[in-house]
Design a protein around this nucleic acid. Structure first.
Length: 264
DNA sequence: ATGGCCAATATGATTGGA
């Protein structure tokens, strides 16, 4: 008997600022696994209590002030690894992966906070492109396992002109430059499926709206938070959603949660 | 009105975000 496994990603823009809306959202949506980004706190400061009290296990990879990722799961988190392979000198907390055993199988999940890369060109953009190359190498290796795999997070990449309200305004931005989109395509072409685009051709599907200039009210957004699925995960995909109303709620992050249901 | 924000830091300005 198959049941739905719900897997979500959310860039919270400081987890300590988002505890209340996050716990409310957990109770409402009942995700099985959540990938968080931009937690912006050291591991000891992560607000574990309210999340554990909601019935979740937690694995964190944080740092002071910037970045920070976490995995939240109703099922135990196994084989937890922090840090994207490929550069031992990279100390930015942008990657954590785990295996989650569920009643009818297992999934491998990674929470990804890909570098912003602005201003471009420059050192920060070089770091972004190198990080994307490392992510491609990681994904190639994991895809060889032929497992249900979900790479979820804030990719800081706008895949196509359909994923941005006003492409002209973004043409020189690190999130949309041709080299960024080329690397994102190279990642997809390994055999990953962009869950939202696999289930909808709708225009105007965004996951981020700037805090400034009434961007949300004008739907002046971009789609940069993605769930990328291996074939073994994609073949189980039954639903995809963007929790857009969260952007209009109390104390919103500038990103909203995106989630999928997989038959398991 | 073509500009408007938010979070962290020993903070009263700066940095990063996107």
């Amino acid at each position: 008997m198959l049941s739905a496994m719900r897997i979500a990603t959310w860039n919270v823009n400081s987890v300590k600022q988002r505890v209340e809306p996050f716990v409310r959202w957990l109770k409402e949506r009942q995700p099985d696994i959540v990938c968080l980004q931009e937690t912006k706190c050291v591991d000891d400061a992560f607000p574990r209590g309210p999340i554990e009290d909601s019935g979740y296990n937690i694995a964190v990879h944080g740092q002071k002030t910037y970045n920070g990722v976490a995995l939240i799961s109703k099922f135990p988190l196994e084989e937890v690894k922090s840090g994207l392979p490929g550069d031992r000198s990279d100390d930015q907390a942008r990657f954590i992966e785990a295996v989650v055993s569920v009643p009818n199988g297992a999934l491998r999940v990674a929470s990804i906070y890909l570098p912003n890369g602005n201003p471009a060109p420059g050192e920060k953009y070089d770091y972004k492109l190198t990080w994307m190359e490392r992510l491609i190498a990681f994904a190639r290796e994991r895809l060889e396992l032929e497992e249900p795999l979900i790479l979820a997070g804030d990719f800081n990449a706008i895949p196509t002109p359909a994923d941005v309200h006003d492409p002209e305004l973004w043409k020189d931005d690190a999130l949309y430059l041709p080299a960024t989109r080329a690397k994102f395509r190279a990642l997809i072409h390994l055999g990953l499926v962009d869950a939202v685009r696999a289930t909808s051709d709708d225009p105007g599907l965004y996951t981020f709206w700037d805090y400034q200039a009434g961007a949300f009210q004008k739907n002046n957004g971009i789609r940069i938070d993605h769930l990328l699925l291996s074939p073994q995960a994609a073949d189980r995909l039954t639903a995809t959603a963007i929790d857009r109303p969260m952007r209009g709620g109390e104390k919103p992050s500038d990103h909203v949660p995106v989630w999928i249901d997989l038959d398991f």
